[in-house]
Nucleic acid binder design. Structure first.
Lengths: 201, 201
DNA sequence: CGTGGTAGATTGTTCCACAATTCGACGATA
DNA sequence: TATCGTCGAATTGTGGAACAATCTACCACG
């Protein structure tokens, strides 16, 4: 429901209401909510329960700060270990196969798979956990914003570049490219956010 | 109790026993445990409750991988913003004031304060949260290992260098210095771990 | 028009209950 | 004797009801 968009940003999730709607006990709902809080999807207001996170401009910037930290480190680790990342290559392939009319959701899925592959390649449980958190938040972003996306082929080209950079072995150049890629994505989302704010305002 | 060392690594925390010992209800204990699980201090075994995390060599390496990712990014952000970090400077001062016989615990506290100051300076809520997780795990490490530490003045000197590097403005050199500093710390802990394993074996 | 108070709603926590699952002991069988 | 399966106790996972603490909204009052 959260990632569906069927819940308004900032909506308060009352315990009795939702536990009944989900057919679970209030305790169980609270336990589940705690997990989602740690993923950043919900926020706990003391004595006022949980509410769906509202992401403002600063949040998006912040999410991408952490994302940059994790992905850059993952890239460095992967490159110094010289590991191949077949899943990332597979993601690029899937990008290439997309037609002009590919659904936005498909593009997002492949994008996520690409970046997750790089994280997975590190074999670091903790970097993985931390990244899982930002990834849910990004999904939440997407659910709330539906930002503008480039044509599939442009997205494909950009990721092909990233993969080639990794294979080239030039760490600094790759790092720079990733920073640019992630920075652009963050800009995309922030402009989408501001566009929505204009509508609601 | 966890960070005291009064609980053995890998110990199972039975719900009835601990909720009674702490004077809280079983549900409350479960909720608290969930939070500690997210901090990496406890592990949940399905249908077998929670147990105190046991950190092996790989875990230490992994913790410091994430720590490196976060601190390096924090340093970069702080340096590009040109922010002063008075708390870090204060930590260095406290190091300088330490006598030869300073307690190990004091050294750890100041060390933590120094590194946390750098993280705090980013103003990034999410980098902060992620770092809080590794920090508790490091504390757990410390509680379980009591590793060998250099003389206080050496530790002081090393941190003074780090701070000076930040002030110098040379990002790459600073990054290299931090990687070395953190790598050494990780080595310290892993050797301490291996030393303990020899004893128990 | 602002202020304070009161009543209702909601959360945080406790206690009790019970199904599901795991673990260990016991005994049967080869 | 060793292996395996079965049974029972212990423990977890979940549900339900209750209650104090806290918050919210509304209303009376100055």
């Amino acid at each position: 429901m959260i990632l569906d968009g069927s819940l308004e940003p900032g909506a308060r999730l009352r315990e009795t209401e939702f536990s009944q709607r989900l057919g679970i006990a209030r305790h169980t709902f609270r336990a589940a909510a705690q997990i989602l809080i740690n993923e950043g999807l919900l926020r706990r207001l003391p004595n006022r329960g949980v509410q769906l996170a509202v992401l403002d401009r600063d949040d998006i910037v912040d999410i991408f700060r952490l994302r940059e930290a994790l992905e850059i480190e993952a890239v460095r680790l992967g490159m110094s270990a010289g590991t191949e990342i077949p899943e990332a290559a597979a993601a690029v392939e899937r990008f290439n196969d997309l037609g002009e009319d590919a659904s936005w959701r498909t593009v997002v899925d492949i994008d996520m798979a690409f970046h997750r592959a790089i994280i997975d390649a590190t074999g670091s449980e903790r970097i993985n956990r931390a990244y899982a958190g930002v990834q849910s938040e990004i999904l939440l972003c997407m659910a709330q914003l539906r930002p503008h996306y480039d044509r599939p082929e442009d997205v494909a080209a950009e990721h092909r570049e990233l993969l080639e950079a990794i294979r080239s072995g030039d760490v600094d150049a790759t790092e720079k490219l990733f920073r640019k890629h992630l920075g652009d994505a963050a800009d995309n989302l922030t402009t989408a956010l501001e566009a929505r704010e204009e509508v609601t305002a």
